[in-house]
């Protein structure tokens, strides 16, 4: 399954979208290091026009959690 959020992660991490799912996290994706995390925050904020708090950024340890955080801000993907 691919959707906008998976595609955003695939773009920023430069990996194939089919290799990602909501369980993907920094331990399962080689490219997801601390610098990638920084790029992801910027991309998520730009793409979905949201502002993330530091607490939310620190919580985002999997794609599924990002989806939940975004849903909490009224962004459904």
């Amino acid at each position: 399954m691919t959707d906008r959020l998976i595609e955003l992660f695939a773009d920023e991490l430069m990996v194939d979208a089919t290799s990602l799912n909501d369980d993907s996290n920094p331990d399962t994706v080689e490219q997801w290091d601390s610098l990638a995390a920084m790029r992801l925050v910027a991309a998520i904020e730009e793409t979905f026009t949201v502002n993330l708090s530091t607490a939310e950024i620190m919580k985002m340890r999997s794609i599924g959690i990002v989806r939940t955080v975004l849903a909490g801000k009224g962004v459904s993907i």
Partner: peptide, 13 residues
Amino acid sequence: ERKRLLYRQPYAE
């Protein structure tokens, strides 16, 4: 400020 504290990235995009 968020990125400065989280990632030592002091500046915005």
